[in-house]
Design a protein around this nucleic acid. Structure first.
Lengths: 217, 217
DNA sequence: TACTCGCTTATACCATCGTATATTCGGCGA
DNA sequence: TCGCCGAATATACGATGGTATAAGCGAGTA
């Protein structure tokens, strides 16, 4: 088995006994787990390109877990987080949940609650990765378009007729047709509805990357 | 001024002094507010069809605020909720946030925090209403389609050519063209990309209402 | 310099789309 | 029974879309 989608739980806690007990908990259900004493150690380690979930104590060496959660987002590590804590309070838990945490457990918690939360986190990450990789594929195709082709794709997806596109860009209609055909091939769009959906997905997550062709370079 | 979009805060709390103090807080910033002693009272009152936000104590007469939050969702009242409490705990706050609460404030809280949360809730409700009403408009148009027209809309939006649609439905191509033109008129779609987007929006929120034409009746 | 690449245009031809006009048929309610 | 509606179909015509072939131009590059 190659198991390319082997999920991993990443545990960061400065307490060795907790790391060991969590490690063995996950081992007991056949869930791969890696433990780290500090956030630095976690960031330094090379993480597999597979679905994962973080288990954090809100009280961490060198800053709170909440801060680290925000750091992750800004450094592009979009991994679901499950918090566990012995000394949390309500504002802390609310902040964590607002920031997108999967769960916020207070010690002592039931093992099953943690397992459930981690499972949910991994499934969410798996789905996010699927979506991200599919979107990246589209982005790559769009990047392969020339500036002219991008302009034309935008207008065509907006519903403009070839002659309207031609007028808008001060071109002859045949030129638009040629570029349009090229766009369909490069974007691997078999039909116009396909192209429309591709354009919308790129606009939704790429945020105006289409309209502003310069930014896409 | 007709002010059809006058937003309202709905406060449910069994403590009169709290109702009065919150009422005057919102009054001081020009925010309309209505108070209720019980959830029953709130449900019985006729609420304006305008953006709103609920302010709830988690401890309510006849059930917890959390339960009431779930009741609201299942009874179709999709109003943003801001919790305030004097005796909450972490699992409670986490549950509330998971269920979609805007904020979970512990007493004593700063007035501004409540005002901010309510403002956020109202803006969210305004946006949800905009979206819902626009979607309802689309649903109405789709309901005006005959069964045949619906089938054809689905296939056309999927990118099938007229002749392919004709083959799939055992029709002549001209028949498909006639229905297709009718679909465009009834759906108020000026272009095919418009129709594709309408179909996708209906599929996304109507959950297969398109594919299963029977369910839409 | 020769070559590639992006961009432009033209001709020619065929497929597809869209609409108007007209006819036929069956079901259903007034 | 009459009339309306959904449905299907046909002819005819024009607009629009799509592709192949060919060619010219300018910028940047091997």
């Amino acid at each position: 088995m190659t198991s390319p989608d082997q999920s991993t739980v990443f545990i960061i806690d400065d307490d060795l006994s907790i790391r060991e007990s969590l490690q063995s908990l996950f081992q007991s259900v056949g869930q791969a787990a890696q433990t780290f004493e500090t956030t630095r150690e976690f960031l330094a380690a090379k993480r597999p390109d597979a679905p994962g979930c973080l288990v954090l104590d809100v009280r961490l060496p060198g800053g709170s877990g909440l801060e680290f959660q925000r750091e992750l987002v800004s450094s592009g590590i979009l991994m679901p987080v499950v918090f566990i804590t012995g000394h949390g309070d309500i504002p802390m838990s609310v902040g964590a949940m607002k920031a997108g945490a999967i769960e916020f457990l207070t010690k002592p918690f039931r093992d099953q609650d943690l397992l459930d939360a981690v499972h949910k986190g991994i499934e969410r990450d798996r789905e996010r990765r699927r979506e991200a990789s599919s979107l990246q594929e589209l982005r790559d195709r769009f990047r392969s378009l020339t500036p002219r082709e991008r302009e034309i794709m935008v207008l065509v997806a907006a519903g403009q007729l070839n002659k309207q596109v031609a007028a808008a860009l001060q071109l002859s209609e045949i030129t638009v047709k040629v570029h349009r055909g090229q766009v369909m091939r490069k974007m691997k769009a078999r039909t116009l509805p396909d192209l429309v959906r591709f354009a919308d997905r790129l606009e939704a997550e790429g945020l105006g990357r289409l309209a502003d062709a310069e930014a896409a370079l």
